[in-house]
Amino acid sequence: MKTKYTTVYRTLLFVAGILAVSLPAVAIDTLKIMVPANAGGGWDQTGRALETAMKSGKIVQHITIENKGGAAGTIGLAQFVNNAKGNPNAIIVGGAVMVGGIITNKSPVTLKDVTPIARLTGEYDVIVVPADSPIKTMKDLVAQLKKDPGSVAWGGGSKGGVDHILAALIAQDAGIDPSKVNYIAYAGGGEAIAAIVGGHVTAGVSGWGEFEGQINAGKLRPLAVSSEKRIPGINVPTLKEQGINVELANWRGVFAAPGLSDAQRKELLTTIEKTAKSKEWQETLKQKNWIDLYLAGDDFGKYVVSEEARLGKILTSLGLAK
């Protein structure tokens, strides 16, 4: 009898031991990255670069990336808020484009529904035309815009996003009603490339990283970048140099799921900080011409709120939001 009880007791201990081991570990070993845009876009590149840096820096072992494009990332955001609620192993890539998209689309899901973690990078937009286009400079483009605003079809990322705002700002600076801009929205810059290279739209506007490959291949001609000063290593004039008083940066960052405990949030903050400081990440920044705009935690939260106000104002004055 006695031995039988001991066996049962031992078995129970063993089971308890297994249960204890299978409890979730504190350090983050798996991470789901939601990229709310289709292939080739800036968020996609950010997500994939994070994956590379985390893996080669041995910060996170298992990483899944999910692409879910459209409607300025609000489609992906809605899915993320739905599925990842309370999941400490999930982040979503987002940024200025999403802020704009939420306002113009009157999205029922906003950035208030997620937990801000960190701003990571900034990128400047570039305006391109197909290599065989008769338009050679920004002056040519603005001239055509002034003559007939609707004749310039702009291809770029989501409606109400940074690309769209930049096109509208350029029109406004030229004295044209920004709501007259003929903007063709794609799920991401990558999807727009085919239409620009094929000459189906007049000009393309999106992040430098998204067009870089086709610019270097000689298929697209860069007209201007949206930075204040020339970007080192890129021999393309700024808008300001060409008499257009417009400057715009597209920041990108990561957010976590809603409903996290303080400890879970801290864990993610440390993970992202480690990644952002890693050698691999810094090399990626250089290679992609992204500017390091690292800003974490509560400061980032405040920044997001201020961006919502700033972009909301621009979009309203452009007639894109009510």
Partner: peptide
């Protein structure tokens, strides 16, 4: 789900699981 070109919700009946189609 959300319409890509305008960002308007279509036939989602306010159900968040349908926002993304």
């Amino acid at each position: 789900g959300f319409d890509r070109q305008s960002g308007q919700a279509r036939f989602t009946f306010g159900i968040p699981q349908l926002f993304d189609g």
